[in-house]
């Protein structure tokens, strides 16, 4: 009800404003303005203009955060709101400071990438109570916020399913699989392993011969994969949790000249150098892409919705899962992956 009244007021005011403009204009105008004036357009633009959006990824130094920002900036320029970027550079404490400062400067929306479920929870609570809307991207928070992005569990399931298809029953392959996890305590890793093991539990023919954390480190992933290959020359699949790390696993397989026998599946934001190029050169056999272009589009949509509706702090926090695509060497097209130019 409150919102209705507010919208009505804004609508009336802007109508009045437009009317007053048009009532002055006709004197100078040669031709008459024809047709019906859409009363919702002006309020739409009005609700965007001069707004402040905070953006706190976990780091500005990798493809996902860069892609999201590039997408967001296009719309910001178009609609005339400002994006304030803060870069914690993988440091939670710096992220907390950045969030703290941003909340103090009272923007309308903060788009953030949680380092984990916990770290920003109390800040989100404080900010939400102060009337700021939070859009979490790719990693959820223990405190409810609007969510766009990966469903990691589904991601894990998709990767596992791909391996099951390649190495499972009736494929004639060994069914031996290595899992290369990220930092064990991170949500992305924890949810993915859940999805992977869920699928594998239904397929007893799949044998997990190695399940280790490479700490998001490509070198470590390479080392693990090499050793596993050595121990199990009949290895069939490697599941990786993030392209930045899996390149190490893929290199180990390539180095052993086994890319035809061992299926390496990775996942990531679908950046060309990290995804399509690696599929083409055989580093990966499949790549689960949660396309950053789509995610940026979703972020923009949610921003437009929230700015117009301005929901109350206790409003329902909806979730927009990203629809991932399993890319392989055979199904990639020129547009399957993105580059920074995709946002120009």
């Amino acid at each position: 009800m409150k919102n209705m009244k507010k919208w009505a007021a804004i609508g009336l005011l802007s109508m009045a404003a437009i009317l007053s403009l048009t009532s002055v204009k006709p004197v100078a105008a040669e031709t008459e303005v024809e047709g019906i004036n859409d009363p919702t357009i002006a309020p739409y633009f009005e609700s965007m203009k001069g707004k402040k959006i905070g953006y706190v990824p976990f780091s500005m130094s990798y493809d996902l955060s860069k892609g999201w920002l590039a997408g967001m900036e296009i719309q910001a320029k178009e609609l005339g709101y400002e994006i304030i970027t803060r870069d914690p550079n993988w440091n939670t404490d710096v992220g907390v400071q950045a969030m703290d400062q941003l909340i103090n400067s009272k923007p309308d929306i903060i788009v953030l990438q949680n380092p984990d479920l916990q770290s920003y929870a109390k800040l989100l609570k404080r900010g939400t109570e102060a009337g700021i809307k939070f859009i979490s991207v790719n990693i959820k928070s223990a405190y409810p916020s609007y969510y766009i992005g990966e469903e990691w569990q589904l991601n894990g399931m998709a990767e596992a399913q791909y391996i099951v298809d390649k190495c499972g029953k009736d494929t004639g392959r060994s069914g031996k699989v290595a899992i290369v996890q990220g930092i064990l305590t991170s949500a992305a890793s924890a949810y993915q392993i859940r999805g992977v093991t869920e699928v594998f539990s239904k397929h007893p023919e799949i044998q997990v011969v190695s399940n280790q954390s490479a700490n998001w480190d490509a070198g470590k992933a390479q080392e693990i994969t090499r050793t596993v290959l050595q121990q199990h020359p009949d290895l069939c699949g490697v599941i990786g949790f993030w392209d930045g790390m899996d390149i190490g696993a893929g290199s180990a397989v390539k180095e052993a000249n086994m890319q035809d026998k061992v299926f390496v599946v990775s996942s990531g934001g679908g950046y060309k150098e990290a995804a399509c190029d690696r599929l083409e050169d055989g580093t990966y056999s499949a790549y689960f892409s949660y396309d950053v272009r789509g995610q940026a589009q979703d972020i923009n949509t949610v921003i437009r919705i929230l700015l117009q509706t301005n929901p109350a702090p206790d409003a329902f926090k909806f979730t927009l899962p990203t629809r991932g695509v399993m890319l392989t060497k055979d199904n990639i097209k020129p547009g399957s992956c993105w580059t920074m130019d995709s946002f120009k």
Binding site: N91, T92, D93, V96, P115, D116, L117, S119, I183
Partner: peptide
Amino acid sequence: ARLGNGGSYPGAGM
């Protein structure tokens, strides 16, 4: 008490 941060990173690089 301030943050209730159960993540794995607190104090890294401190």
